[in-house]
């Protein structure tokens, strides 16, 4: 921990991320994304465990397997694998690789884990209704000036600010 380096300037990080989005659109016609990869993992599991369920055309994940498609053969799956590698490289360079549960001294690890799970579930449901997450629906949406991008960002942050008071014990 003692050799841990400082974080990159956030404006610089933003410009770099913006250029990355630009090149992603230029090369692949789409921007960044993450939640789509998780949905595809779930679709893959459904396909293995309950194939009859997902093969039903009315099931939600049917679109990922129809016409014999492989749900994991998708750009977002590869992007998330890449993000894991990229994060690991940066963490390694900056001496931040460490197995731990991060939380304030005021709560226990157990509590943090519980709330991380609840938050994840809510986010998974939200990213489904929102047809993408903070990056796929929000960031990309704003980059192409889509109404949905601005709306989803406004509601993510708006809800966060409106409810932050109730969860301050988790963070402060």
């Amino acid at each position: 921990m003692k050799n841990q380096k400082k974080y990159m300037n956030s404006y610089l990080a933003g410009v770099l991320l913006g250029l990355l989005i630009l090149f992603s659109f230029y090369l692949t016609r789409e921007g960044l994304g993450a939640s789509g990869a998780y949905k595809r993992v779930v679709a893959k599991v459904e396909h293995i465990v309950v194939p009859s369920y997902i093969e039903n055309t009315s099931s939600y994940f049917h679109k990922y397997i129809k016409d014999g498609k492989e749900p994991m053969k998708n750009r977002l799956v590869f992007m998330v694998i890449g993000a894991f590698i990229g994060g690991f490289i940066s963490g390694g360079i900056n001496n931040r690789l460490k197995l731990k549960v991060e939380h304030t001294p005021n709560i226990t690890s157990k509590k943090r884990i519980l709330f991380a799970a609840i938050g994840g579930i809510l986010f998974g449901i939200g990213a489904s209704f929102g047809r993408g997450c903070t990056s796929g629906a929000g960031l990309n949406g704003m980059a192409v000036m889509a109404v949905s991008g601005f709306v989803v960002v406004a509601f993510i942050f708006g809800t966060g600010y409106l409810t932050a008071w109730f969860f301050k014990k988790l963070w402060l």
Partner: peptide, 23 residues
């Protein structure tokens, strides 16, 4: 839903991948 997930869970899908990658 995503706002609630963010304030309760502390991550979004993209950032959680990076955080998981460093342990």
């Amino acid at each position: 839903f995503m706002g609630l997930g963010f304030i309760i869970g502390g991550f979004c899908p993209g950032t959680s991948v990076c955080a998981a990658s460093i342990g």
